[in-house]
Design a protein around this nucleic acid. Structure first.
Lengths: 255, 255
DNA sequence: CAGTGGTCTAGACCACGTA
DNA sequence: ACGTGGTCTAGACCACTGT
């Protein structure tokens, strides 16, 4: 066996090793943006493997947008990525329970109505379309945690017409019911209006964090929801790390 | 020629075709969460290709977390993903100019100082470490758009010690200088404190959107920044769409 | 223990873009 | 026009796991 142990580094695939090596060179800055990384055939020599193997790795790096591949020219480290971050949209119940507080919600309003002018903009439906409007207050212990004002498109989700959301809040219920595939979030700070402030039991006009979310399934709008969190009490957290795309790594215990 | 055109569907690779097919089955709900998708060998038959080809596709789908693969059992459609969204962290200048307003910034404070107690928490550095504190006000036309309070770790970025940020605001300058690879954002609503309110030319105590960002390169903190946007005037937008992971598509002209 | 996925090979042809 | 990446093949062995 001339090959002392080219492939079995034990428990880590050749894939992963090459990927890690290249990733490190890029992220450490050793290979700055614009740098041409070795050609496939060079890596094949270096790692003593077949071209398919390095190709797979380079393809994956290109998918991660860490490199850019150009025929005849080679593969190049891309410029620092357009900043973006992954924002985790937690389930409200989970969010509350993570604080160690008991979770509870209360349906404040439940009303079927034809889509009005305002609804049309929110839901992107024809006027007069049947909708369901629900207002829910979520509590963390005794204190209001978040007020949810939701509009559901009954054309897209006819099953919701009779649903009273007694066992599951509308958000969770919808998530089970409809495999939504697209969403848009808008986040801003507002002075909480009087009506909302009363539900949340905070002074009118105090700052609130508003998250508005529109959700589509296939190509029709499913629901629009406005979540109002009282002032400083709530934080959204988003993380960004181009390095770790832990997706592929099965055995990695994610440093 | 029984096979009318096995590989060249013209301009679209077999990869892509299989990927698209499977993706559609999953996202349309035809294959609901938990459904077992065809075995590799079945797809090999169906598409008349080698196993490597379908394996590549399935591996990619697994990386996208659309399916979960289990030996001996098969591959299964995953449950609707823990909701998350991609938050675009725009460059402030770009953000302002997108509003059609002229952009301008002003350095309000520029101060080198040893890291104090508070700084240690923000930057994750030793006490007494040299830091640079900068306060910048960004304007959209005549109106203040955003107040930036930034702390830079001069150990990580010694070049910043003499930088006066006359040509480039600190954020943009740092992005060019340091290939940061990890960041954490915290977003919340606050009642803007008096000092900040004065700079922003808004009433003290009015609502503001605060984005705090900590940035790391390799394993040391680079900078901490707190961006305060006056009340209702600003929105963060985040989008989520599991379907399109345009990464792989070579011909895509990247919207 | 049988069958699935995980990985890898050593070739091959083609398309494209840069030199 | 040449050399790079893009794609694909027809095998192979192994590890894991569910029946």
């Amino acid at each position: 066996m001339t090959t002392s142990s080219p492939k079995s580094k034990r428990s880590i695939s050749l894939h992963q090793r090459i990927l890690n090596d290249l990733e490190e060179n890029i992220l450490s800055g050793k290979w700055p943006p614009g740098h041409r990384i070795p050609f496939e055939y060079e890596l094949v020599e270096q790692y003593r493997c077949s071209r398919m193997t390095v190709n797979k790795v380079l393809t994956q790096l290109a998918n991660m947008k860490l490199i850019e591949r150009r025929r005849r020219a080679g593969s190049f480290v891309t410029k620092p990525h357009s900043s973006s971050a992954v924002l985790e949209i937690a389930d409200i119940k989970a969010e509350v329970e993570e604080l160690g507080l008991p979770y509870r919600y209360e349906i404040k309003t439940w009303k079927r109505q034809a889509a009005g002018l305002r609804d049309r903009k929110l839901l992107d439906v024809q006027g007069g379309s049947p909708t369901l409007k629900v207002v829910v207050c979520h509590y963390a212990g005794a204190r209001p945690f978040c007020l949810e004002e939701r509009l559901i498109n009954l054309v897209a989700v006819p099953e919701a017409a009779e649903e009273k959301f007694q066992d599951l809040p509308p958000g969770s219920w919808l998530m089970r019911q409809v495999p939504w595939n697209s969403a848009e979030h808008r986040i801003r700070a507002v002075a909480v209006p009087a009506a909302t402030a009363e539900e949340l039991n905070i002074p009118s006009g105090s700052p609130g964090l508003v998250v508005e979310r529109r959700t589509w399934s296939a190509d029709h709008a499913v629901t629009h929801v406005r979540l109002t969190y009282p002032g400083d009490g709530h934080e959204l957290v988003a993380r960004f790390s181009p390095s770790r795309t832990p997706a592929a790594a099965p055995g990695s215990q994610a440093a």
